[in-house]
Every structure is written in structure tokens, then in C-alpha cells.
Design a protein around this nucleic acid. Structure first.
Length: 930
RNA sequence: GGGCGAUUAACUCAGCGGUAGAGUGCUACCUUCACACGGUAGAAGUCAGAGGUUCGAAUCCUCUAUCGCCCACCA
């Protein structure tokens, strides 16, 4: 007994140690040789804005499982880590920090957050870009470090020597290179267009960063009088304040009500501007009044109409969502105030025909929830159409496989309808746009490096564009830029394209689509061959985790509470593709129990190992060295062993082979939950419940032999094999236990060993069948004992069968059966047992009875028999119904019919014997009664 | 307005054409020398509803209901 192995597993006692060990030993650098096959993946770089959340942990767990699995199958694995500068998020968080420093006394909460944000923004503008960006860098150093420590703690087997940050000088060079080349090809352009403008963030955002929310609102019907006083047209609008910027009213030219009015002039109410009635196909005659007010500067549709009809664009709302001077008397009001004022004035002028309640979809800034204002502004855009075509083809022809398949359609639908991408942001933290403007002649210079003079007029007053690029522009380069592109580095050559990418469905468009587009454009190859889309982690009530709801689970906290392995396993076993994960403490607890089970199984092995003499240990160490697959069954079968051990060993190795194949298949298809359940069940309910119990006497018997018994060797092999299979899911506990097993030679980590023990050759249906037969007997005996209330006793039992081979099998394993079933003795009878003993009929065709002193309550006995009989009856009915169906026999596969036949025979036999026992019982009762 | 997904034991979820499964919880018994974060045995489900295809459907098809998500330039 080694007292230093505690009974209850404490993850905190070993996990930090191995986490450090893996990093310090640099175990997860791929080898330098040209060893193929390789397997590569670039980590979706977490934003430096925060610490890791459960979504990251799920993602990192899934990736780590795949990486460790491939590594243990002998592949040269690169998992490249990194972090993203997250332009807009970081800027907001750093602003809030500044605000908090200025107003430290506010009670934390939504109101305080808003106040800090406002104050922080003010302070940012005060301090200027240089100082602010410096603050961001400080934040990055601090937070990047936190994230890295968290990843280490969670056991991510990444190669830290290759870590990248999206604003590293080398990475920034790639970003500029891409921008310049796209510009030179005419794919990047600059222009005044309607963009989604967030007045709170003070920047343009892309379509994807705008969320839509249905809110109750109104539809106001407003009269626009004709210039000549001959009546009016009624238009319907949800945003009356924008009418100040109207430059036309549009109707559908095919609309008979309005057709003849096209070309006439209206007087725009409130501002008294004269605007024309125009005809445009866009207008839906069936909506509202069939006449639309056109505001080219404040609505994307109207902008398009304006383009077609050459309408003026009048900006009446500014970048802070206040009314401009163009709004006349409303100038200076907020958009909300302007709406009220305009309605009041229209009402007063009798121009509001009616008001209807109306459910409208408002656009809000994904980040700060402020209502987005479509505004005209000068921005940089990337033309997507020409780039989308190859990106569509790559997925359609299978060069990129998206899993699960349903995501394919989502991706393609979006790609087919793609719009140009606004890539400039009015922010300070990020990649500065490499464009310079000449103060003298207005020339725009896009270049890799700051030009010293204007190439057109030689003027020297060049000013760089103050804006930065959308974060996703730079992260879109991740799979190749992180490997050193634009230089043709060795890493790029060896690890690009990546074999796999794993991400959540929430960033499929933001990121996956852009990586595919840019990867194909700049490397001529796909960025990754497979894309696995994982689910989102929600709380126990399926709510999204969010700080405001207060339901966020911190990965480190829960990891410290239950152990990383338990949390990882809980995530992996819940990760069925397609559905989000409802995550709860309960789940983790049950896998902590699993870890404890593994620990104690290990303790059992190691404790007994401790009692072995030194030479025996060396012998075992040698036996545990990886052996070539071919040698496996030779070793298994050549060792002399008792009949009993050979069956248990053959069975467990057969199951081990099955399980290994199943797990490999599941993991290859990213069915993490399936693989997890398979190993869970195998370890607990086969290895622990049956195999360990079966071989226990052999193992616990003290030995002074220099060579350990075959039982020992096989136990150690099974246990080590199970550790191998578990390792990708539970790296810490398996690493610890593996190191405690005797190994000869250099043993650096279980994660670097190759799993070679499970040969398909070990699959042995005969042994599995024999084992099942014995298990049925043991379970039936235990059951009967419990039924009879004999749990505490050790009764004797009798088995009867016509099948001598089964009796022979039981006799050979008599000792084991007695021990596992808790029986005193077992005797064998050729033929069936008498019905008046009310034996239990087994599916294998045997009868089992117990001998006991106590007189049995006939009513209880009867209840048992009736219950069993009813169960059998039901099953029998079902199968008879099936077999009596002629078309089943003629149409179902032969195999299926044969199985059904066999099953019917078994059931009919059991049914017959139960009925017989019941009849005897009734007969006896009648006799007693008479 | 389009599209996708879910609906299976008290709870959380697997299974997705051939005898209804797991974990948790529940019941009874057991502190037996790996483990009470344990062991043994057990109870528990007309697989949302209605049609259809099939020898056979929880599984495929259609419709309905409820819930959830994504996309969309209907003022």
C-alpha cells in the first residue's frame, strides 16, 4: 500500500504541474524533419479584449482532442496559437478603462458602463491617437498574457514558439501587402456611399456587424401637397425626421393611380422645398400608399433610387445623430427630438393623414446596441463579387469540406448574395490604412511604405488616412499570414493549407468566408481543407451566457473546482453537432466522478504494482514498451495462462479493439460526444466493472516471482491502452497515471507515444459471446438474490442445461462466477431444472435456481414469475407478429429474419419454462388450499 | 418574407430504417481489502400530433402545433 496515493483524486494537485511541463518541455513543436504526414491547424485567435469564456474552452477542447489524437497516431502536428487585436472591441474596452479611472466611484452596472464609456471616449479624444494606442498596447501585453496562461492551464497542446499576434510587425506587413495588391488590382476602392454608422462608436461598421431587432413603432401617413395647390400625395414613413432630407417622392411607373403624376412637383412639408414625383420600379404599389418619400442620404434604397434619377443628396443627420444645418429649424436636435418636433409641426399643419401601429425592424450596432444610422460617408470598400466566385467553387467542388453539411448551404447562400465590404473604420487601434493624401493636389497614394513626396505634384504635405481596417480584414489572412506570408517560409510550405479549422457558427461569414476568399486570392490554394462548425455553449437553461445576465461560467473557476479533465470531458460529451450545449455544474460533477474512477482504477493497479519485486517491475516495464502491431496477438496468446484469465483477456482485448476502431471513426467525423461516450462506457462498465473484478485475485495475490504473471502484463496493457484512448479527452490525469506506470527508456509524455496495441486482429466474437453468457448468469444470480432478499447471504445455486458446452464453460469459470455473483457453491445438472423450483430461464438456454433456507412467500414468488412472464410475453408477441408476416420473411434481409428466428426460439423457451413454473406454483397452492 | 434546427424516461441529452439508450435524479440493499465522486439490483418512455412511404418508422416524406436560431434594402 502506498499511502501517498490519495483515495480521492485531486486534480489541483497534478494539473498545474503537467500544464507547466508541457510548455517548458516544448513538447508540441512539430518535428523539423520533412516527416509527412503532417496535420496543421491555426487556432482561431482569441480577442485580446477579454479572458477566455466557455465557448473558447469548448473550441480549444475540441481542437486539442483532434490534435492530440493525430499526434498519437504518428502525425507531425502543428497547432499554431495566436491572438487578435480586435480593433473595435479593444478600443471600447480601453476607453471604458479610461473612464473608470476618471470616475472610480460609480457603482458598477449598466449605467456606470455607459458613463465610463462616454468619459473614456472624451479622454481618448483628449489624449490623441498616439497615447491612446500606447494604452492599447499595454492592455494587450497584460491581457494577452492572461489568455496565454489560461490556455496553458486548460492543456491546449499548442506550439507556443510559433505564437502570433495580428499586429506583430511581420503580420502587419502581410496586411499592408494584401491591401496594396488589392488596390492595385482595382478590387479596393474608396468612395462616398451609404454605410451603417454607429453614432456611439463613431465609426462605420459592416453589414454583418448590424443586428436587427423587431420593435413596435408607427407608420405615419403624411401629405405632400402639389406645388400648384391641386391636392397632395400621401406617403407612409416610419422615420418622419428623415423627410427633411427628401429630394423626391417615388411611385411605381406601372401604378395606374400615380402614373400620370410622374414629373409633377411637390412641396416638401416643413422645409417647403420643391421636389419631383419620379417613377421607379423599386416601389411596391401594394405597400403603404404606393408612394415613397426618397431620402438618398439616409437610406440605402433611396440612395440607389437617387443614383438612378440623379437626385441631390441632402445630409440632415450628422455623425453624432444630430440634425445638421440642412435641417433648418430642426438643426441641433437629436434624431429622436427631431422626429417629435417634425410630427408636432406636421400635425399642426394638418398634414398627418393617419397613424398606424407598425412592427418595424430596427438596425442596431451589434456591439453597443445603439441604433445604427445609414449615413453617407467616404469609406474604403472591397469588391466581393469577383473574389466570391472562386470561394464558392472551392466549397462546391469539395476542396473545402464544411461539417456539418447543413452549414454548406448557409455559406453558399451568403456567398451568392454577397455585397461589397466596407473595410475602413474610424477607429485608432488597428492597422492604419496605407493610403496617403497629398495636401497640395489631392492625389491618393496607396503604398507599402510612407511616400516621401507626392508622385504627382512632388508636394511634401502628405497625410496618412487616419482610419484603420476592419479587424476581420486582417484575421482573414490568418491561416497564411501567421505562417510567414508574404515570405515563402518553410512553415508556409510545410503547413499550408491547414488541414482543419474549427470555429463557431456565429463567425462563419465574418471569418470563415473571408479566410476562404483571401486565402484563395493570395495563395492560390484553400486556407484549410475541412471546416468543422461547433455549437455554442449556453447555460443550464439554454440561455446565452452574458455578463449582463450574470450567468457566465468562467472556465478557470469551474476548472479549479472540478478539474480541467472533468470540464473538458463534459464539453466533449455534450458536443453533438447541430445543437447548442446546455452547460451545467451537474454534468461536470458526473465527469469528476469519472476522473475519480480512473484515478482509483489506477490506484488499484499501482498499489499492487508496489508489492511486486524489482525484477518483476522491470519485466513489466519491458512488456509495456510499444510493440509492433503484428506482435500483439502473438504475445497475447503465447503466454501460458489459466483458462479463466485467457477468456477475460481475450474478451477485453477484443472489446479494446472494437472501442479503438469506434473511437477512431467517431473522431475522424468530429463526433466528439460519441467517442467520449464510447470510452466512458468502456472504461467504467467494462474495464472496471468486469475486467478488473474478474482478474482481481490474480493481481492481488502476492508474488516474489521475478517475472510478473501474464495476468499482470495484460492488465497493465489494457490499462495503458485505456489511458491512451482517454488522453485526448483527459490529458492531465492520463499523463499522471501513465508516468507512474513502469516504463523503460525515455518516457517524456503519454501524448508523444504511439498507440499500437489495439489490433483489429484481437477482435474475437467467440470470446465476446462466451463472456456474455457468463455475464448473463452472474447478473441473473445477483438479481435473484436481490429478489429473494438474500443480498447479505451467500446461497448455493444450481444451473441446468441440455447444452453441455455451456455447462463446461461455467465449470471452467466456476470460481469467478461464485465470486462475482456472491454464491457459496454452484452445481451443474444435465437437462432442465424442475419447474416446481421456479428456476430463472436464461437466454442462453440454461435454468438457474438458488438454494435457500428461508421459506419463500408464494405470493412474492408468484409476483416475480408473473412480472418476468409478462415481460417475455410482450417481447414474444412482438416478434411473432413480425415473423408471421409473410412479406417480412420474403422482403427483409435474410440476416434480419435469422436473428428474429433465433430470438423467438430463446423467448419461447423462456416463456414456456416460466409458464410451467407458474403452473406448478398454482398447483401447489391449490393442493394446500384443499 | 426566406432558410435552418429542436420536440425521446422526472431533468439534460444521444440514437436517425430492423428487440427504445446514456448521464443525473429516484427506489431497495451494501461502508466487501481501487473507488460512497463507490458497488449490486430495480422502477421509469403510445420517441410533440396527424397522415403517408415500407415487410418493418423514434429514424424517410407531407402537413400541423410549440420553441429557438440565422438571413433579408417591404418605405
Amino acid at each position: 500500500m502506498q499511502p501517498e496515493i490519495p483515495k480521492v483524486y485531486s486534480p489541483e494537485a497534478i494539473e498545474p504541474h503537467w500544464a507547466r511541463y508541457w510548455v517548458e518541455q516544448q513538447l508540441y513543436r512539430p518535428s523539423d524533419g520533412a516527416a509527412i504526414p503532417r496535420f496543421s491547424l491555426s487556432l482561431p485567435p482569441p480577442n485580446i479584449t477579454g479572458s477566455l469564456h466557455m465557448g473558447h474552452m469548448l473550441e480549444h477542447t475540441e481542437i486539442d482532442i483532434v490534435m492530440r489524437w493525430h499526434r498519437m497516431r504518428g502525425q507531425n502536428v502543428l497547432w499554431l496559437p495566436g491572438m487578435d487585436h480586435a480593433s473595435i472591441s479593444t478600443q471600447m474596452i480601453v476607453e471604458r478603462e479610461l473612464g473608470r479611472e476618471a470616475l472610480p466611484d460609480l457603482d458598477p452596472g449598466p449605467a456606470a458602463r455607459r458613463a465610463w464609456q462616454r468619459e473614456g471616449q472624451r479622454r481618448r479624444l483628449e489624449m490623441g491617437p498616439e497615447k491612446f494606442v500606447e494604452r492599447c498596447w499595454q492592455w494587450k501585453e497584460q491581457n494577452g498574457d492572461t489568455i496565454r496562461r489560461q490556455m496553458e492551464r486548460l492543456g491546449a497542446s499548442v506550439d507556443w514558439t510559433r505564437a502570433r499576434f495580428t499586429m506583430d510587425p511581420a503580420y502587419s506587413r502581410a496586411v499592408i501587402e494584401v491591401f496594396v495588391r488589392l488596390y492595385q488590382e482595382g478590387l479596393i476602392y474608396r468612395g462616398q456611399y451609404i454605410v451603417n454608422w454607429c453614432p456611439r462608436c463613431g465609426t462605420a461598421v459592416s453589414d454583418l456587424e448590424v443586428a436587427h431587432e423587431d420593435r413596435p413603432g408607427h407608420l405615419w401617413y403624411i401629405r405632400y401637397p402639389f406645388e400648384d395647390g391641386s391636392g397632395h400625395i400621401v406617403v407612409a414613413t416610419t422615420r418622419p425626421e428623415t423627410m427633411l432630407g427628401d429630394t423626391a417622392v417615388a411611385v411605381n411607373p406601372s401604378d395606374n393611380r400615380y402614373r400620370k403624376l410622374i414629373g409633377r412637383k411637390l412641396i416638401l412639408p416643413l422645409l417647403k422645398r420643391v421636389i419631383p414625383v419620379i417613377g421607379d420600379e423599386f416601389v411596391d404599389p401594394n405597400f403603404g400608399t404606393g408612394a415613397v418619400k426618397v431620402t438618398p442620404a439616409h437610406d440605402p434604397n433611396d440612395f440607389a433610387i437617387g443614383m438612378r434619377h440623379n437626385l441631390p443628396r441632402i445630409t440632415v443627420i450628422d455623425f453624432e445623430a444630430h440634425m445638421t444645418a440642412e435641417a433648418g429649424p430642426y438643426a441641433g436636435l437629436s434624431r429622436e427630438q427631431a422626429r417629435e418636433a417634425a410630427l408636432r409641426d406636421l400635425e399642426a399643419a394638418g398634414l398627418v393623414e393617419k397613424t398606424e401601429d407598425y412592427q418595424l425592424s430596427v438596425s442596431i450596432c451589434e456591439r453597443c446596441k445603439t441604433i445604427v444610422e445609414p449615413l453617407l460617408s467616404m469609406q474604403w470598400f472591397l469588391k466581393m463579387q469577383p473574389l466570391a466566385t472562386p470561394a464558392i467553387r472551392a466549397v462546391e467542388d469539395g476542396r473545402i469540406r464544411i461539417i456539418p453539411e447543413s452549414s454548406n448551404k448557409v455559406y453558399l447562400d451568403w456567398m451568392y448574395r454577397i455585397h461589397d465590404w466596407c473595410i475602413s473604420r474610424q477607429l485608432w487601434w488597428g492597422h492604419r490604412i496605407p493610403a496617403w493624401y497629398c495636401g497640395a493636389c489631392g492625389e491618393v497614394v496607396v503604398a507599402r511604405e510612407a511616400p516621401s513626396a507626392c508622385p504627382k505634384c512632388q508636394g511634401s504635405s502628405l497625410r496618412q488616412d487616419p482610419d484603420v481596417l476592419d479587424t476581420w480584414f486582417s484575421s482573414g489572412l490568418w491561416p497564411f499570414a501567421a505562417l510567414g506570408w508574404p515570405d515563402q517560409t518553410e512553415d508556409l510550405r510545410r503547413f499550408y493549407p491547414n488541414d482543419l479549422m474549427i470555429m463557431g457558427y456565429d463567425i462563419l461569414f465574418f471569418w470563415a468566408a473571408r479566410m476562404i476568399v483571401l486565402g484563395l486570392k493570395f495563395t492560390g490554394d484553400v486556407p484549410f481543407r475541412e471546416l468543422y462548425i461547433h455549437a455554442l455553449v449556453r447555460d443550464a437553461d439554454r440561455q446565452k451566457m452574458s455578463k449582463t445576465k450574470g450567468n457566465v461560467i468562467d472556465p478557470i473557476e469551474i476548472t479549479e473546482k472540478y478539474g480541467t479533465d472533468a470540464v473538458r470531458f463534459a464539453l466533449a460529451s455534450s458536443a453533438a453537432p447541430g445543437t447548442d450545449i446546455a452547460f451545467s455544474d451537474d454534468k461536470v460533477q458526473s465527469y469528476r466522478a469519472f476522473a475519480n474512477k480512473i484515478w482509483n482504477a489506477g490506484r488499484f493497479v499501482l498499489m499492487n504494482l508496489g508489492s511486486l519485486p524489482e525484477p518483476a517491475l522491470r519485466h513489466l516495464g519491458t512488456a509495456l514498451e510499444p510493440i509492433p502491431e503484428l506482435g500483439f496477438d502473438a504475445v497475447l496468446h503465447s503466454e501460458p495462462a489459466s483458462e479463466a484469465l485467457r477468456l477475460a483477456d481475450r474478451w477485453i482485448f477484443s472489446r479494446l479493439a472494437d472501442v479503438t476502431l469506434e473511437m477512431n471513426e467517431a473522431l475522424a467525423a468530429y463526433r466528439f460526444h460519441e467517442a467520449a461516450h464510447t470510452i466512458y462506457h468502456f472504461f467504467w462498465h467494462e474495464i472496471c466493472d468486469w475486467y478488473l473484478e474478474w482478474v482481481k485475485p490474480e493481481i492481488t495475490r502476492p508474488s516474489e516471482e521475478p517475472r510478473v504473471s501474464p495476468a499482470w502484463i495484460n492488465l497493465a496493457r489494457v490499462f495503458e491502452s485505456a489511458l491512451h484512448l482517454l488522453h485526448p479527452f483527459m490529458p492531465f490525469i492520463t499523463e499522471e497515471l501513465w508516468h507512474q506506470l513502469p516504463h523503460t527508456g525515455e518516457a517524456r509524455s503519454i501524448s508523444l507515444t504511439r498507440f499500437a496495441l489495439a489490433s483489429p486482429r484481437a477482435v474475437d466474437p467467440v470470446s465476446e459471446k462466451q463472456f456474455e453468457t457468463i455475464r448473463e448468469l452472474v447478473v441473473a444470480a445477483r438479481n435473484l438474490k436481490a429478489e429473494m432478499g438474500l443480498q447479505k447471504e451467500k446461497p448455493s445455486a444450481q444451473v441446468g442445461s441440455d447444452d453441455l458446452r455451456i455447462l463446461e464453460l461455467f465449470r471452467a469459470h466456476q470460481e469467478t462466477v461464485l465470486r462475482l455473483a456472491g454464491l457459496e457453491a454452484l452445481n451443474f445438472v444435465r437437462g432442465r431444472l424442475p419447474a416446481d423450483a421456479a428456476p430463472v430461464p436464461l437466454a442462453s438456454g440454461c435454468d438457474l435456481r438458488l438454494f435457500y433456507e428461508r421459506t419463500v412467500d408464494p405470493a412474492a414468488e408468484r409476483a416475480r414469475l408473473e412480472r418476468d412472464l409478462a415481460k417475455i410475453q410482450q417481447q414474444l408477441d412482438q416478434i411473432e407478429r413480425q415473423l408471421s408476416n409473410g412479406s417480412f420473411r420474403s422482403r427483409a434481409p435474410q440476416e434480419v429474419v435469422a436473428v428474429a428466428e433465433r430470438r423467438r426460439t430463446e423467448l419461447a423457451d423462456q416463456h414456456h419454462r416460466l409458464a410451467e413454473s407458474l403452473a406448478k406454483l398454482d398447483g401447489a397452492a391449490e393442493q394446500t388450499a384443499s
